[in-house]
């Protein structure tokens, strides 16, 4: 029997290859007083390894499943769409909320993301004020208000 990790203790997985964007996002989340741990994956491959508990992430205790994925679309190698597809196709991951967090306002990107099962689509802002606002909203909505799926849930018909 696996003990349930309280949802709030589950980290956020930030999938982002640009180190400056990583720092800006982390800075904004800190400023929004987010206490949840954030694990950063620098590529699509790393994100999938983490989520599927492969390679260096095989220890689920050290690397527990996240409560939310913040996913950039434009990643080297395996891109955000492929991550999204694999997450939503895997029985243990498919209910995991994935928030696309990208610089593209392109309609085609928005449509493709939702088609692959994204739960939300946010555009990276240019100004600090907007970025802080987004960090607060993520904190308030996705991590507090929104009731996420329990771990190891089975399909209910």
């Amino acid at each position: 029997m696996v003990s349930e990790i309280p949802r709030v203790e589950r980290p956020i997985l930030l999938v982002e290859d640009n180190p400056m964007d990583v720092e800006l996002t982390l800075d904004a989340l800190r400023e929004a007083r987010l206490r949840t741990a954030v694990h950063v994956a620098r590529s699509g491959g790393e994100a999938l390894d983490y989520l599927f508990g492969r390679q260096q992430y095989s220890d689920r205790k050290a690397y527990p499943l996240p409560s939310l994925v913040l996913l950039d679309l434009h990643l080297p190698g395996i891109d955000g769409y492929e991550c999204l597809r694999q997450i939503k196709a895997a029985p243990i991951l498919k209910r995991l909320p994935v928030v696309v967090f990208t610089s593209s306002r392109d309609d085609s990107d928005v449509v493709k993301s939702y088609d692959r099962g994204a739960n939300s689509y946010l555009v990276k802002p240019a100004s600090a004020t907007e970025r802080l606002e987004i960090a607060r909203q993520i904190h308030r909505y996705w991590l507090s208000l929104n009731l996420g799926p329990p771990l190891f849930a089975t399909d209910q018909t």
């Binding site: 400056m20 964007d21 800006l24 610089s103 306002r105 600090a128």
Partner: peptide
Amino acid sequence: SYSVSHDLRAPLRAVQGFAEIIAR
């Protein structure tokens, strides 16, 4: 245009973001 929106904006976002943090 797609590439402009990403490749030009990413560094710009960093410039603006860090400048704002420092300025504030």
